[in-house]
Amino acid sequence: MTGAFLAIVGRDLRLAFRRGGDTGSVVAFFVITVTLFPFGVGPEPNLIARIAPGVLWVAALLAATLSLDRLFRADHEDGSLDLLALSPLPLEVLVLAKTLAHWLATGVPLLVATPLLALLLNLPLQGWGVLLAALALGTPSLSLLGAIGAALTLGVRRGGVLVALLVLPLAVPVLIFGVAAVDAALMGLPATTPLMALGGLLLAALVLAPWAAAAGVRLSLES
């Protein structure tokens, strides 16, 4: 089972990097969205540093949502999803593998781009570690929640906007604890409580999201 799991992760990653567009456009979207904020609120460094954690988190959330539409859709349209579902691997595990690949192809590049953006937004250095830790714990949850939205909208013609409408309200807790962790670190307080809450959310999403997303995928295979 582990072998099949890793094979699917590898396949999806190879597909993502060969196509190339996904990772690049997600990171570009993230960077451009963040750089728009100083134009919106003015170049005052203290204000920008104050809103930096929230801006980075909201931009990361939007960027992660942007790429969700392709998580199952391409495989669904060319029929490879039907073949994958025929394998002895439970559909829940298949969904988990595809979600992990999605996170590796889009979530991790966001993490890599974050220090550069933190620099641009004058985020004080003491917040950097916690920001990266919070994003590392939070973005997998976003991918898992996104997998539910992507699976449920399979077969909808204009699914992209709908995925955002379904997923963004579910992501509110991740956003709250993610920003709170960085804010706590900036104020010199321990960030353990929000970070542990993020970890708890990730565990809950790991348990529940594959089940719901697999139910959505199964639905698209029935017809």
């Binding site: 539910i148 449920l152 909208t153 077969g155 909808v156 204009r158 699914g159 709908l162 409408l165 379904l166 309200p169 579910l170 509110v172 807790p173 959310l201 809950a204 529940l208 719901a212 139910a215 959505g216 639905l219 698209s220 029935e222 017809s223």
Partner: peptide
């Protein structure tokens, strides 16, 4: 939006039912 998005009402109903349950789990967390 999800319940109305499908051409086939049965599929829309099933997908939206799953979403309603996911949302229900999420309400106390929110």
């Amino acid at each position: 939006a999800l319940a109305e998005a499908f051409d086939d009402p049965t599929r829309g109903g099933k997908a939206a039912s799953i979403l309603a349950l996911v949302g229900f789990v999420n309400v106390p967390i929110v």
